[in-house]
Amino acid sequence: MALTGTQWTISAGDHVATVVEVGAGLRGYTVGGTAVTCGYGEDELPPKGCGITLVPWPNRIAGGRYTFDGAAQQLGLTEPDAGNAIHGLGRWERWTPVRQDAGVLTLGLDVVPQKGYPFQIHAEVTYAVHAEHGLTVTLAARNVGRGRAPFGAGSHPYLATRGHELADVTLTLPATEVLVVDEHQIPVGSRPLSEDDDYRAGRVLGRHRFDDGFTGLQPVDGRGTAEVRTPSGGARLWFDETFGFLQVYTLADLTPGQHGVAVEPMTCAPNAFNSGAGLLVLEPGDEWTGSWGIQPL
């Protein structure tokens, strides 16, 4: 068996996506055989979180500690070097198929009450490919417990550079603010964009590299968009208004010779369980849903 469990392939026309059981991750998305997102092999674990689904929180929680409704909680430290809990509880879980047809796959996960997160959430992620519109990813969650639950969601796709160096990539970001972080990558505030990190009009990366969170996004008609373009084409990542934050991470050699630009839509800021920035609180029976997608360019 592949290290990431069962592998499902969905397709429409020449659009093909491969989704994996562990982490409900997107292992690859191609159009006409050309990689639109970065991928990895069946005998590999997702490098640097490639393609994984982030629930019930995205990014980091400082020290794995937070207090909710008066009760202090301590999560396991899954980023021990920095002392953080990172990327939620679904990353290494086997998600269960709920629906599958030629172009659509839905996977579900019951997040059970546990140390540090004593809440009950049922999460689902639906991947759908369309021959004209590309890939759409819909995340959903329902509080199936008896008490209120803190919640956040996100995804971790890497857009491919199609064989080009990062220096040759043109990046467009719809943000007006960048998060200011401490030495553990935990936000301590935000600031307006400087000339160096203002990519609203699209700029060639050159020597600039990112591992930054952004907010103050600028949706148009209910959608925000970010773009990665290369001399050989690129991709537009869109997201609906439920995603108020983006984490952007540029990485050479995600796998040998494969460079990528992670553009991660997130409902909340890193450490939102402590700061409250974008945090969702689901009452018993409450449901949440949000969508993002990728259109090849």
Rank of each mutant, 00 (worst) to 15 (best):
Y199W: 13
G108V: 07
V22W: 01
L254N: 10
G234L: 01
A17G: 09
I52A: 01
V144N: 08
R94N: 14
A175L: 06
A141P: 13
H133V: 06
G145I: 09
T176Q: 13
G13I: 07
D69G: 02
Q74E: 14
Q114V: 04
T78V: 09
L89V: 09
T176F: 02
V22F: 01
L246P: 12
S232F: 00
G70V: 11
G278W: 04
A252W: 02
A35C: 03
A2C: 08
D182Y: 05
R229G: 00
Y66C: 14
Q295R: 11
S155A: 15
T6W: 02
H87D: 14
P192M: 02
T176L: 12
E227V: 12
T136H: 07
V228I: 03
V178A: 13
G222N: 10
E93K: 14
A123Y: 07
G213M: 11
P174Y: 02
G293A: 09
A2E: 14
T170S: 07
G234H: 00
V180Y: 05
P192T: 11
C50G: 01
A82E: 14
G222F: 04
V55R: 04
P265T: 05
Q100A: 15
L166T: 08
R94T: 11
A82I: 03
G5V: 09
G116Y: 03
T230M: 02
H208Y: 13
L26C: 04
V16S: 06
F245Y: 15
N59H: 12
G293V: 03
D197P: 04
T176Y: 01
D69S: 12
G25F: 01
P118Y: 06
S155T: 11
G244R: 13
G51Q: 10
G206N: 09
F245G: 11
G76D: 15
W238P: 13
A12G: 06
P58T: 06
Y29N: 02
G39N: 05
E195Y: 00
G64V: 12
E227P: 00
T4A: 05
E183M: 10
A2S: 15
S190A: 14
R60L: 03
Q100T: 14
F239R: 11
F239E: 08
P284V: 10
T4F: 08
L107G: 02
I294D: 06
L26W: 00
G70C: 08
F210Q: 12
L135V: 07
V228P: 00
A35Q: 10
I52F: 03
G103I: 02
G278Q: 10
G234A: 01
P284N: 10
M266C: 12
G276D: 06
P150H: 08
A226N: 01
D101V: 07
F151S: 06
E177F: 11
L193N: 06
L246G: 10
Y127L: 08
E283D: 15
D101P: 07
G206S: 11
T255L: 04
R99F: 13
L171Y: 02
G216E: 10
Y40V: 05
D196G: 04
T172C: 09
G293Y: 03
I86C: 04
T289I: 04
I86W: 00
V129P: 08
A71C: 12
Q100G: 13
D110P: 06
G244Y: 07
